[in-house]
Design a protein around this nucleic acid. Structure first.
Lengths: 333, 333
DNA sequence: GGCCAAAGTCGAACCGGTTCGACGATGTCT
DNA sequence: AGACATCGTCGAACCGGTTCGACTTTGGCC
């Protein structure tokens, strides 16, 4: 394997000259540069990442910390991960993906051994145990999911409160007075998944404002419990519309409704909150708030990259809740 | 940030002694070791990964090369990725996940800059363009998916041929004489996704052996084309059973069958090939061959780790096609 | 022609670990 | 008591890059 010394020798220059030719940080004459480039090509030289990291304190790697909870629907997670990987690469970074259960410990390990220049956290909880660690470490951090205390980080999330209101409005405008609300499982709340109660509180409050009656259920996440529960809710036969904030439930809904011969929107109006890709994957015919995982993931990476490039501006952090967009698929009336 | 020199100073020893205390490669007296450990704790020292990589030529990172094709069903891919990440961590490795479209180039880049100790390739095609690169690089490689030439690699895959035969047998035993076979999209074949024709050829051959008539279709992958196609196939009303080797089709099947009131297995027998998790996700009530992505992923990592630990035995490679297990969910008769 | 700035290159130091050879202290065996 | 192996530690070299300061050469300007 060729190293920078071999290149220098072959081109008849010193190691530093090769380095400068590569980085462009000092002027190099055209003739010399061409000789160096030829030598690099002939020897197939690529700088050693470890050595470079050691010298520059830069790894060009971003740590992506994801935890795949059993009670959350995994396909949805992937929709964040892929755009993040793409955006990172566009900015010249690779992705070290960490899925360990013990997030704080993993974060500590990766950070203190300086394997990454920055960190993206997915699925951040209200009082996320990773955040205290994030505050101690040297690398800048960016996240998807709104924690209680955002100080020191770039934070991006959907505006779940507004999303809840928008969907209630949508139903209220169409005259619905009694509705069903299906939210994530209780575990998500217990874990501090703030998006759950942010959405739900806002929805309940807005419904109260309209004088709507709301029947609220924590949706199941695993089959066959999901189908059974949907059946029970339909049996109860309360309400003329349904707001579903639960991936597993909304994915299973078409088949259950079909099986029971419930026609949407004639007999029941349905709205949800999921990404376009997710909707396509499960062929969901429901009007819904778009969750834009790709947009959020990209934003997180872009903000992080800015901080990594310009560590001075460590004070300026973005907290951005993107506005919900409703996609009307005609499932309400 | 504390480095090994700070620790040495605080413990009143030399840097090398600290290093030996950490690695255990030479004997260190109990007293000295305890002083060093205390210093490490007090200073919160963690070895710098780049420096260590430079000195040892070991990164403790595995490169995971995945390409998410639009015409393949992404949720299925995740089922390989997560077990791989887990298995890697258990062996002390982290995962650098690379999703670039230009796989060969990415492989070249990561490998020659020595960012990883070894490489896992997912979804390997018959003549995968990444393989020529794999043969040149210094790091050992392991893969899921059976290429034409396996020499030099550890290869793991489901035995798709046997899977095809097993499913045909299953239907033949129940007296079916005319069946529908739905395979992956044409693009998958064109790309050299060998699992597609390995399964299909074996199934067709076995069916011929029984004198069965087979109606063969390339399944669609994106909605709403999937549903439309399933409808058309059902309209044609040929055959008493269906073998589905296509994730998007099998995922959509329950709702289409429901909608048309086709009862399984009374009016139509259905078998498929998908993982248990996938079946659970989409609540699929079909008898199927288990694809065991978790098992395959773990095998790939374990084999790779062996090669990384013992580079001498570079000659001995495993090629393992795991035997299909059929899970009877009662969708045939 | 002399002075000065800019361009181009080099050598040395440094980043933070690991590892080899050497050396003193200690213990064992004859 | 002397020879010798073993234990414990140290200093120096090395891994492969980057970067700083200094030096030489070139060119422009008065």
């Amino acid at each position: 394997m060729a190293n920078i010394q071999d290149v220098a020798q072959r081109a008849g220059v010193s190691r530093s000259t090769v380095s400068y030719a590569l980085s462009g940080k000092r002027a190099i004459s055209r003739k010399t540069r061409e000789r160096i480039e030829a030598a690099i090509r002939e020897l197939g030289f690529t700088p050693n990442a470890g050595a470079r990291a050691l010298a520059t304190s830069q790894t060009l790697v971003i740590g992506l910390f994801v935890h795949f909870f059993q009670d959350e629907f995994s396909p949805a997670m992937l929709q964040y991960v892929l755009p993040i990987a793409d955006a990172a690469r566009e900015a010249g970074y690779d992705i070290l993906m960490v899925t360990e259960t013990d997030g704080p410990k993993a974060l500590e390990r990766i950070s203190s051994s300086e394997m990454v220049d920055g960190v993206v956290l997915l699925n951040v909880a209200h009082e996320d145990p990773r955040l205290p660690v994030m505050r101690k470490i040297r690398q800048p951090g960016s996240m998807v999911g709104l924690p209680k205390n955002t100080e020191g980080f770039d934070v991006f999330d959907l505006d779940f409160e507004e999303s809840g209101r928008v969907l209630v409005d949508h139903l209220a405008e169409r005259g619905h007075r009694e509705i069903v609300l299906i939210t994530p499982r209780k575990d998500v709340y217990d874990r501090g998944g703030a998006y759950a109660w942010r959405f739900q509180n806002a929805a309940l409050q807005q419904a109260a404002r309209y004088g709507m009656r709301v029947h609220w259920f924590h949706g199941e996440t695993q089959q066959p419990a999901v189908n059974r529960q949907i059946g029970e809710i339909l049996d109860a036969n309360v309400g003329t519309a349904m707001i579903v904030h639960n991936d597993a439930v909304i994915a299973a809904l078409p088949s259950v409704l079909h099986a029971r011969g419930v026609r949407v929107p004639d007999e029941l109006s349905v709205v949800g909150i999921f990404s376009e890709d997710f909707g396509q994957l499960f062929n969901l015919p429901y009007t819904a708030v778009e969750t834009s995982p790709d947009k959020l993931g990209r934003l997180a990476v872009q903000a992080l990259v800015q901080h990594m490039l310009d560590p001075e501006r460590a004070g300026a952090h973005r907290v951005e809740l993107i506005a919900p967009q409703i996609t009307d698929r005609g499932s309400t009336k």
